[in-house]
Design a protein around this nucleic acid. Structure first.
Lengths: 387, 387
DNA sequence: CTGTTAGCGCATTCAC
DNA sequence: GTGAATGCGCTAACAG
């Protein structure tokens, strides 16, 4: 029931192909021949004339509607005719035109994704999850990636609407405050998002926001750390803001003071983490642990610490976030929070399918978990690390 | 002239929108209202009835053909009529149907990409480059990513053909030996590839294959290293094979022997690099440098070396490949070869556009360059590292 | 069982 | 200047 409406007549996960035996038969050969429609004399101007239903019909001496029936396994057709048609389709190298089909069926079997630049592993993982899940439901993915400033999101939304996508998945933190985007997503085709949408009204897939920050902070506090530095992601982003807020709350829960001097923006990037760490240690003393809001920045943090001759975790513990593939082999291997990026992508597709099925589904919250490795240890006896 | 045929009437980089003033005028408002076609009484069964040219026409008291003209800035239309039509389009929230347009124009302004799983940064970078360049040419990207085994590439090709993409970009090393894929790409819609295609006949975009391996090896030899270990990518891949072959050649050029014991498969992954290094050092002695065929594996290599108490570059130098974002902040920062992934993606799109313009264009070869950082140094005086 | 009639939404050609 | 006719390739409903 998670399947796209127009898929419903077919077995799940079969997409559009393979479901109908006849179709499976002819398409294997057909696919090898793109425009070998030699029997197709009508060649409108320049472009490759690709075989159409009519061409198949002509070759099989039937009307093209009958061909349509056979190739879609719909109405009843005489076995002999059916056979002729299938052979004709194979011979001619017929490949159905999804555009025309969509025009008629009012469903493009296509899903639009608007994503933050995915050079970084984490959005890429979500995208991989989306694409895989979509594919398994027989949906194609149209990809639009945003420039860092997140402007022209509205333009891409429009393109997706023009292409009549059946649904939209947003993975664009840069657009989370854009009211116009919010309006469009509420008024346009069904949508779900991996990040907040201004004005709400769009189903969300998130990873336990509280735990994501609370787990690592509690871990550090349990190890005896009292002055915990924070290297944040872009501070405009809700997720970064929220994680920092949770950091404050957990500190408060344990009766620890909040010191704004301990918080620095690392902008999600390796170099940002590196620079933020130096700034942090230059101006604040007594830091024995650093909470880094993603693993990429943590790589920079480890490097900066190393440059300063501080050992990890001896002098300073480090906790990351994401469980990026490199986290397992940094020096030392990074204690971090495992985030379910690929799962979130897949969940988003399923949620979108529910949304398309006209219900107004509930948000999905995915669990996160700690991965304990070697970058964290008890706070050093002397409470002030040398820095 | 690098622009897609159907773009030619419009200024480059304008895509389909913004080129025609009139169009720019009405689409701003129109985009805010998806199915607000309240004036549209015909509601065929269930789906959202979206406003069409006819609806706009009805509201403006003209024929829909005239609306088409105005909205595309084609034929001459009376200013008053034009104005009425534009307002009607705005009011009604008209959004053109790209499917119908493509059906008619025989060009979907769409480009299919078949890519290896892009969880890793390098294929993701190429994809980002492709998407950005495509977008700037007004083309949408349909994304299909392959499972690691690279099977069912043929299936995805077929889907792209059904969707009548204007061209295909392959970034699928896993399919480089697949004859069927080669045949399809030669017979089907215009295609270019970032990796070899079985049987050739498809324009290629590559990064100087010789230099990619020769540069780092020469660097190490110049530093006095004579026993240079190699951690390769998946050895089935042409690129891995070729880099290893070049390694041999450069060795030979310098009169150094080739020792197969010095070569280990790291399968492109962090953990692979880690494991390969341990295997290498367990069985071969005297290694003072390791050539790693990508930076991700190099992270694992550095970790393994560190585990064994070997200092980098004191005991053992390490050279990577790619200039992955983390390479600048590994411990120590990694000397590596900078690969132009994003550029390659962009170049592939431009090459594809040439290819579509019916010429049979030449392959593109992009330059690579060394990035010298701290992981390489002169070979230690005692020729055998302790391991 | 098969072919006919009717669109889907749009662009193009040609009358008026 | 404008609209009527035609067709893109396909699916759906009904007629024969």
């Amino acid at each position: 029931m998670l399947c796209h409406p127009t898929c419903l007549r077919q077995p799940p996960n079969a997409g559009r192909r393979g479901a109908v035996p006849d179709r499976a038969m002819w398409q294997n050969r057909a696919v090898r021949q793109w425009c070998r429609a030699a029997t197709c004399e009508r060649s409108p101007s320049g472009g490759d004339p690709v075989a159409s239903l009519r061409d198949v019909a002509a070759r099989a001496n039937v009307s093209f509607q009958t061909v349509s029936k056979v190739l879609n396994g719909k109405g009843a057709v005489a076995p002999a005719t059916r056979q002729r048609i299938i052979e004709a389709a194979e011979d001619i190298g017929y490949i159905p035109n999804a555009l025309a089909r969509s025009l008629q069926s009012r469903s493009s079997l296509t899903l639009g994704v608007i994503t933050v630049d995915f050079s970084n592993a984490t959005p890429a993982l979500s995208l991989v999850g989306i694409e895989r899940e979509a594919r398994q439901h027989g949906l194609s993915v149209i990809l639009s990636s945003l420039e860092p400033d997140g402007s022209d999101c509205v333009r891409y939304l429009r393109v997706l609407m023009e292409r009549r996508v059946d649904g939209i998945i947003m993975n664009a933190p840069a657009a989370e405050e854009d009211e116009e985007v919010g309006r469009l997503l509420r008024a346009g085709p069904p949508a779900v998002s991996l990040h907040d949408i201004a004005g709400g009204g769009v189903p969300l897939v998130t990873a336990e926001p509280e735990a994501t920050a609370a787990l690592p902070i509690r871990h550090l506090i349990a190890l005896g750390h009292r002055r915990i530095g924070v290297v944040t992601g872009l501070q405009q982003r809700h997720s970064a803001q929220h994680r920092t807020a949770v950091y404050r709350e957990v500190l408060a829960e344990h009766g620890l003071p909040y010191d704004p001097l301990l918080v620095e923006d690392g902008s999600w990037e390796v170099e940002g983490g590196y620079a933020a760490t130096h700034r942090l240690l230059d101006r604040a003393s007594g830091i024995t642990a650093i909470y880094v809001q993603n693993d990429l920045m943590a790589v920079g943090v480890l490097n900066a610490l190393h440059e300063r001759g501080l050992s990890v975790p001896g002098d300073c513990s480090v906790v990351g976030c994401d469980d990026h593939p490199v986290a397992a082999r940094t020096i030392p291997p990074l204690t971090t929070v495992r985030m379910p990026f690929a799962d979130a992508g897949a969940a988003a597709v399923r949620l979108l399918l529910e949304r398309i099925a006209s219900t107004s589904p509930k948000d999905v919250v995915l669990p996160v978990s700690m991965v304990y490795r070697a970058s964290t240890a008890s706070a050093p006896a002397s409470r002030a690390a040398r820095n």
